[in-house]
């Protein structure tokens, strides 16, 4: 599965990068690379089974705390 993942992300890079290089769109290339890296590392970590805390839990926590404060303030 990791192999499939690498191939997929490789294909994405192969699809976009040559065009960007040809057109000399360095800024776009940088942006592409950063988003690509974020997505790739995230998916790799997930696939390897690393436990990442889900951001929604954080959101839930913050909202609940805020709601308590709100109610407490009243």
């Amino acid at each position: 599965m990791v192999f499939l993942l690498v191939v997929t992300f490789g294909a994405i890079a192969l699809y976009e990068v040559p065009g960007l290089v040809r057109e000399k769109l360095w800024r776009e290339l940088a942006a592409f690379t950063s988003v690509w890296l974020v997505a790739f590392s995230l998916s790799l970590l997930l696939m390897l089974g690393v436990k990442l805390p889900s951001p929604t839990e954080g959101i839930e926590y913050v909202i609940k705390q805020a709601a308590q404060l709100w109610k407490g303030g009243k």
């Binding site: 499939l4 191939v7 997929t8 294909a11 994405i12 192969l14 699809y15 990068v17 040559p18 065009g19």
Partner: peptide, 17 residues
């Protein structure tokens, strides 16, 4: 044709899946 190759790879992946 990098784009073509990439598209074919993606197509192949889809096919495999």
């Amino acid at each position: 044709y990098p784009k073509l190759v990439a598209a074919m790879v993606i197509g192949l992946l889809v096919l495999v899946s």
